[in-house]
């Protein structure tokens, strides 16, 4: 990995709140910069006062030594500045919470230990789409995330797009945001949710509206049929090993709903909730030893597969574009 510069990390980082790609995040980034600048000025002034109190000759620091400076610096100044900041912050907060409009895309995200279940509400003719750990969205259209959890508290956070919102048992939290430009934005669980909390990330992939429609089209399709004997063997092993008890692959007898839907798993950028890149090697490694790669996740390791069988299953999964 090439060493990126500090500036790049901050202003175009995959997961940086200071690299906003939508109105929610840019509103907050603007507030942040204003506050950083103000804080820097206030900090320097206070330190200069402190330095003056120590270093100026006794005769020339009398102005700093009375109750007046305490009242001016400790009461009057903060009250004025904070009143302004409060009004600005409240006005900003008001714009960040928006109502649904008819063209809002509604996506349910359900937090689970330690991955994200994603469900798109049906639109027009199309069925609903169920996927995991990767959220595709169109640019330039309001998107409403309806956030719930199946187990403990998680927190849904895509720094480049918006602030975080918790997923709390017994309630549905709504977060409406918009994305300005196509790209990949990384999100991560921000509330400690148990063992593998550190390995619970996801990608948001923003497309131009036409590309999004195409993606949606593709997702609505059933899983592709195996094209080669190796892939056919992979599917056979997948079903025989009981993977379908937890995972669904639409168009096959696998209809489990405990783990992520794998109908189009091969099309995703990463596996294990943003933990590893998605390729045959990582898929094979994951199947064989998921408990070592991501301890306390709910999928057992499958050391039963021979090397060859493992390759077949991994190849099959990778083919599910």
């Amino acid at each position: 990995m090439a060493r990126s510069s500090i500036i790049d990390d901050v202003f175009s980082g995959l997961q940086s709140a200071l690299a906003p790609a939508g109105p929610n995040a840019s509103g907050i980034a603007e507030l942040s910069w204003i506050m950083f600048a103000a804080a820097a000025v206030i900090f320097v002034v206070v330190m200069v006062f402190l330095a003056a109190a120590i270093l100026l000759p006794p005769g020339r620091r009398g102005w700093l030594s009375g109750q007046g400076v305490v009242i001016a610096g400790g009461i009057v100044f903060p009250v004025v500045v904070l009143t302004a900041l409060l009004v600005y912050g409240l006005a900003l907060a008001r714009t960040l919470v928006r109502e649904d409009t008819p063209d809002t895309l509604r996506i349910h995200v359900i937090g689970e230990q330690f991955w994200w279940r994603v469900r798109y509400e049906r639109e027009g003719e199309g069925d609903e789409i169920v996927t995991a750990n990767e959220i595709h969205v169109p640019t330039g259209r309001p998107i409403r995330f309806l956030l719930t959890t199946r187990d403990v508290i998680h927190s849904f956070w895509i720094p480049s797009l918006a602030g975080k919102l918790d997923m709390i048992p017994g309630q549905t939290n709504g977060l409406t945001l918009a994305v300005e430009r196509p790209g990949v934005y990384r999100g991560q669980c921000a509330e400690f949710c148990g063992g593998a909390h550190a390995l619970m990330a996801f990608d948001v992939v923003a497309h131009a509206p036409a590309d999004f429609a195409a993606w949606r089209e593709a997702q609505l399709r059933r899983a592709v049929e195996p094209a080669t004997p190796l892939l056919a063997r992979g599917r056979e092993l997948f079903l025989a090993a009981g993977c379908g008890a937890c995972h669904a692959v639409r168009g096959t007898p696998a209809t489990g709903s405990i783990g992520p839907d794998l109908t189009h798993v091969g099309s995703r950028r990463s596996i294990a909730a943003g933990s590893f890149p998605n390729n045959q090697g990582t898929l094979a490694g994951w199947i064989a030893d998921s408990q070592h790669l991501k301890p306390s996740n709910r999928m057992p390791s499958f050391p039963v597969f021979s090397g060859e069988d493992l390759r077949a299953v991994a190849a099959y999964l990778e083919s599910l574009k």
């Binding site: 009143t83 409060l86 109502e99």
Partner: peptide, 22 residues
């Protein structure tokens, strides 16, 4: 009392600026 006054006014400010229950 001065502190109380300022803090009470600050607490009241949001009511004018923010819609309730959103």
């Amino acid at each position: 009392a001065v502190f109380g006054f300022v803090a009470i006014v600050w607490s009241g400010l949001p009511a004018v600026l923010i819609r309730p229950c959103a």
